[in-house]
Design a protein around this nucleic acid. Structure first.
Lengths: 238, 238
DNA sequence: CGCCCCCTTGAGGAGCTTCAAGAAGGGTGG
DNA sequence: CCACCCTTCTTGAAGCTCCTCAAGGGGGCG
């Protein structure tokens, strides 16, 4: 991790309130495993966790805040690959790789935990749950990328965006008690880039939803009034 | 590998004419490494090498022919992820994974070589070149997926298709002496699905290229008359 | 020889983008 | 604390790309 953030005091996983939702769950109370040399860092908005091309040294656990992963090609065009939220692990599908295929940037003030890859490699055989958890997350990640590609090739804008909102509700573990209050840490431009749309189109679709009473969109905050109807619309749409 | 193909006689890498372009290159003449239990199979057109959801047991090397990788969602929609040609390795980015995230199907009569993953895991530390070759291929694969996603979100049909043709020329190692003769083993529908277009659009773009004298399209066979102009067009297009 | 599938071509229209202008919100400096 | 600015978001109008629907052509295989 670059020296751009504020590094907190050295960290013991057994003291971490989030350990249950983290890789480290299994590591707690394993006397045979040495303490993990965790870097626990608090980063402001817009800070790079790593840059595309950097060597892969850590897996990163999002404790709070949110992160976008962005790929840049030689012409300077950007493609946002995915967004990450508390409980997510960043850097998967790169466990074998020499360098990061894209950059990771915080979308808001975030606390990020760094796990040295070397440690995971060394101890994964003693910790079968650790490995199987990583594999499960990898599988989900790859499936997600296939799904989004399929969706961006075959579905209209309002379905893609609706799917995105519904997915966020699930991933953020929001209560389904209505109205659902959804905070979007990314800009309209980021959402649009991720979904393969123009920012104006994202605005228009949200306005359309609002006109039908499904949601109430106030910049970064979306209040979802009718989850069933939104779900029904998304299911039925192409 | 399913029992749907014709399994050739047990195979020794040192006898394989393609070994130089294969994982096995380094394995030849290593007395400390036991012989690889290679399955060498000849498959007709349209045969599955593996199905989505199957357990991952092998990496597959394409010795001849071609293969498409296709993801199917629960609704039965399909997304073609990539195409593979002689010299390519299938099953990368899954070295860590329990099951295949998509299906692999031959596009024509093909000879496919199966490397047991377990063997690779066991011996990769004794064979640094083997591992670094795999990592290099993985990196290229991930970068390729980012590029295609970016392209399908930002570029018009004729650029996407032109890029695809130019990429195939490079990947197939075709001589750049004009006219370049390019054989497309996949159907128009497969190309369209991969590029996120309608089959009719693929036809129309090829016709447009032909009208401008850049290519001569005869079903599966494309004769590229003016590689420079095609490249120039693709570079300049959005 | 005939069937079938794939490819091609045309016409029409839907959906999204682009361009442009205005509104709203957050941050900064006086 | 207020005024200003700048960025981001919204909304409108026009235009273009691509899709859908439909019909015709060609090659391969039985």
């Amino acid at each position: 991790m670059p020296q751009t953030g504020h590094t907190l005091a050295p960290h013991r996983c057994r003291d971490c309130a989030k350990a249950k939702h983290c890789l480290a769950d299994e590591l707690i109370g394993q006397p045979s495993i040495p303490p993990i040399p965790i870097q626990n860092t608090i980063l402001p908005k817009g800070r790079y966790i790593y840059h595309q091309g950097d060597g892969v040294k850590n897996l990163f656990f999002v404790k709070s805040g949110s992160v976008k992963i962005a790929y840049n090609n030689e012409q300077g065009d950007q493609q946002i690959i995915n967004f990450y939220f508390p409980g997510d692990l960043i850097g998967l599908a790169v466990l074998n790789h020499g360098q990061h295929s894209a950059s990771a940037v915080t979308l808001e003030k975030s606390v990020i935990c760094a796990f040295p890859i070397g440690f995971i490699r060394t101890h994964c055989e003693k910790l079968p749950n650790l490995l199987s958890d990583i594999l499960k997350r990898c599988d989900a990640e790859i499936k997600h990328r296939h799904e989004t590609l399929l969706s961006s090739h075959q579905c209209i804008a309002s379905k893609r965006l609706g799917d995105f909102l519904l997915e966020l509700i699930v991933r953020l573990g929001l209560s389904r008690k209505q109205p659902v209050l959804l905070h979007l840490p990314m800009s309209r431009a980021d959402m649009a880039n991720y979904l393969g749309l123009a920012p104006e189109t994202v605005s228009r679709v949200l306005s359309k939803y609002q006109k039908h009473g499904l949601i109430l969109a106030k910049k970064q905050n979306i209040q979802i009034n009718d989850l069933e109807q939104l779900t029904a619309f998304v299911r039925q749409a192409v």
